[in-house]
């Protein structure tokens, strides 16, 4: 089952998750996870950019001069992000308004440049595509978990639909925890996730 191809895809989702283990891309993970709508859109955008950047960089890897390697990667990533941003503005205007600058900031997301530099520049197109997809999904899994916790307990809704009825409105029993909607709330949730992962994978814990 664990063929090398499958491993390329599967590894970054569970074993070597970019957020939980490499602690990359935290800034956007904190900023966009206040509601599930923005979270899902952000996940899709990151997966598209990661795969696209990995494929393009891998395809032209033999032509890229070493001295301007990083600049080339940056140009490719930036172009992809601008195009994704333009698409969101054209077809998902409301959500793109909520995401504001965070789509453009995918350019500086450490995961994207990290993967093109660490993987795509040395590997073939198919492996690079899988690596991009895997890392994108790894990022997405964490974002979706964080987004679910924050929107459900922070606002009592999921995808904007009321699940827990808040006390303040409509006379429900649940009082939304405002802390979770704040950036600090995301830190708590991400920290908690990292802790859970390390309980199940003790080999990750640093030696004293």
């Amino acid at each position: 089952m664990a063929t090398p191809k499958f491993k390329t895809l599967y590894d970054p989702v569970f074993n070597n998750n970019p957020i939980m283990l490499q602690v990359l891309g935290i800034c956007s993970a904190l900023a966009v996870t206040t509601s599930m709508k923005t979270t899902v859109t952000m996940c899709i955008a990151v997966v598209v950019v990661l795969m696209g950047a990995n494929i393009v960089v891998s395809a032209i890897r033999r032509f890229i001069p070493g001295s301007i390697r990083m600049i080339v990667q940056m140009v490719v990533i930036a172009s992809l992000v601008i195009v994704v941003d333009q698409f969101l503005k054209a077809f998902a205007y409301q959500i793109s308004k909520e995401l504001t600058v965070f789509v453009s900031l995918i350019i500086t997301n450490c995961i994207v440049m990290g993967r093109t530099e660490a993987f795509a520049i040395k590997n073939n197109v198919i492996d690079s595509a899988l690596d991009g997809l895997g890392n994108g999904l790894g990022y997405s899994v964490v974002l979706l978990v964080v987004g679910t916790v924050r929107e459900l307990f922070g606002m009592g809704t999921l995808f904007g639909v009321k699940i827990l009825l808040p006390v303040t409105e409509a006379g429900g029993w649940y009082y939304p925890n405002g802390l979770l909607v704040q950036p600090a709330g995301a830190f708590f949730v991400v920290g908690f996730l990292i802790w859970v992962v390390r309980i199940f994978r003790p080999e990750l814990q640093e030696s004293e």
């Binding site: 032209i60 301007i68 172009s79």
Partner: peptide
Amino acid sequence: VAGVLCVVCSIFV
């Protein structure tokens, strides 16, 4: 390489 890449990317964007 830098020149070609820039042209291709600008056309794309």
